[in-house]
Each structure stands twice: as C-alpha cells, then as structure tokens.
Amino acid sequence: MTLTCRKVTEILIDYVDGTLPDEERSILERHLCGCVPCAIYMHTYHETIRITHSLPDEPLPDEFACRLKSMIDRACPE
C-alpha cells in the first residue's frame, strides 16, 4: 500500500496525536523518508501546533481595564 501526498496531509492529525494504526503509521513514515515536500509539510504542521500552544495573553487595554475595574467595584462594594 502506498500513500499520496494528499492522503498524508489528511491523516497528519492522527499521526501527531498518536491515534494512527501501526500499519498506516509505518507506511506514512516510509513516505516521509522518501518525500521531501511531505517531510517539510509535516515539520511545519508540527511547528504550527508548537508555537501556538500557550500563546501568551495580552494585557487588557488600559481604558477597558479601568472601566472594568470600576464596574466590578460597583457590583461588589466592600
């Protein structure tokens, strides 16, 4: 059995999360060894996941932070 590049792309998510059956995983890994575009595609797919994880939160805009704090103070007076 062989895989096309398109099929490789379709099953990357299962490969990455470890749910691809063993036989398909071996076939995919063989394909990746012999296909530079797919190997690069796989690497950049992985990188997309990695650099998006834990994307830091930006602070609230100053004006909104003041407005929100006032609302909370009004809603919960000491």
Binding site: V36, H43, T44, I51, H53
Partner: peptide, 15 residues
Amino acid sequence: HHAGHVRPWPRLPDT
C-alpha cells in the same frame, strides 16, 4: 502530489 513548492521555515523559538 503537492502542486507547488513546500518550503521549510526557519528555526523558531519557544512560544
């Protein structure tokens, strides 16, 4: 097959 060039990215740091 891939229709165009699939180009690598530079090495990226942690998030």
